[in-house]
Write a protein that binds this DNA or RNA. Structure first.
Lengths: 207, 207
DNA sequence: AAGCGGCGATACAGATCTGTATCGCCAGCG
DNA sequence: CGCTGGCGATACAGATCTGTATCGCCGCTT
């Protein structure tokens, strides 16, 4: 219905715009991979320029400062995250959806170059909460708690916000310490903990 | 030669050694506060030198490289962490001890300058797992799971290691997202989640 | 009393970082 | 056909960073 093709970038009629978008996208793609893998402070703009094969002037045309580029990196990660989330949506069963969401999150943690949650990592790199990237990160975590709260409400739990907060904390912990979960698989772990907390929340309701 | 001052720590006969220890400690103290508050990459050695009022040569005498200083910073945090842990030990009741440990950890998260767990933050700043500071951080998290496993065993839980891992994940999540817990108080939150998980673990045992 | 060494202060070397300025090229447009 | 403007390439400015070299001072030890 409202879905458009992935490469339909807003209906710009001019090829020049398309070309410009390609360059901007390429820069952002290369920067995002380097930022995630090495950290934003460890990667200089010169490296991004060299790896993406564009001119430095092009980078600074689309991203006036490096902080802007970092911010766009996190926004890109944010969009990707919710794209996976929406793909796992299940209008028929909030409980099934919760476990489906935990499944793909857990799967992420076993991918080769996994380096934790970029939204969390950015808070370690920049102490200033007003940093544009940290604003994006804070909004991301708020949105996650909000969506978990929606699921909890659909499951008719007694205290949906408390349940959502607890699940989000467990997710953040798994994101941070994903390496320690490699044995059994992070997805199974997350689902197991969520199941325990869910049963407890329902028992409390019937008390 | 054999006369020593009462506060002569390591048996060194020279007063100069005592003085040297003071200077080293002062550098490490100032560096630790700055590293924790701003991040290790954001703080240069010149700032540490200026704030501690020592000579740059002194800093590099005791810490050959900045990475060494960062490593010592994490070791210092590690020692401080276990000092608090040992102070909350309770040989009579592992369960009481668990909640006591979660109490002081939660209390840490509401202190004014709280900026998360330094051992976790360092992993976001340095991608290389071989970095000396990351080695310290990994050992710290291993030790935490080990001690939690000891408590779980003392509580005679069916699967102590699984319980310990879960609790450690929850703690890490709370460390990362401590800000979101400010409403009710992180300590209460941690204890509440731990209580739920503990009850569930005991129910599973009796099945 | 002499000197050895820790210490502060300062300058410096060399690398790296962000961001700008300047050039020439070339494709698309009127 | 000429102009405009995005683009690549390069040099550069200015700041900052880690780590070293060099000086003189002063307290302790021998």
């Amino acid at each position: 219905m409202f879905l458009r093709k992935a490469n339909d970038l807003g209906g710009h009629p001019l090829n020049a715009y398309q070309h410009a978008t390609d360059i901007r996208e390429r820069i952002l793609q290369v920067a995002s991979e380097l930022f995630y893998r090495e950290g934003t402070r460890a990667v200089g703009v010169d490296l991004i320029v060299a790896r993406s094969g564009v001119a430095k002037t092009s980078l600074y045309r689309y991203f006036p400062t490096k902080d802007d580029l970092i911010r766009e990196f996190l926004l890109r990660e944010d969009r990707d995250f919710w794209r996976h989330w929406d793909a796992a949506a299940n209008p028929d069963s909030a409980e099934d959806e919760l476990f489906a969401q935990l499944q793909w999150m857990g799967d992420r943690m076993v991918r080769p170059g996994y380096r934790g949650c970029p939204q969390i990592n950015i808070a370690a790199e920049y102490a200033d909460e007003k940093h544009p990237a940290r604003v994006v990160a804070a909004a991301h975590k708020m949105e996650l708690r909000s969506r978990l709260g929606g699921l909890a409400q659909a499951m008719e739990l007694a205290r949906p916000e408390e349940f959502a907060l607890t699940i989000s904390i467990v997710i953040d912990g798994a994101f941070s310490s994903g390496g320690a979960l490699h044995k059994q698989g992070p997805a199974r772990f997350l689902q197991s903990v969520a199941h325990t907390l869910l049963v407890a929340a329902r028992d409390a309701k019937t008390d």
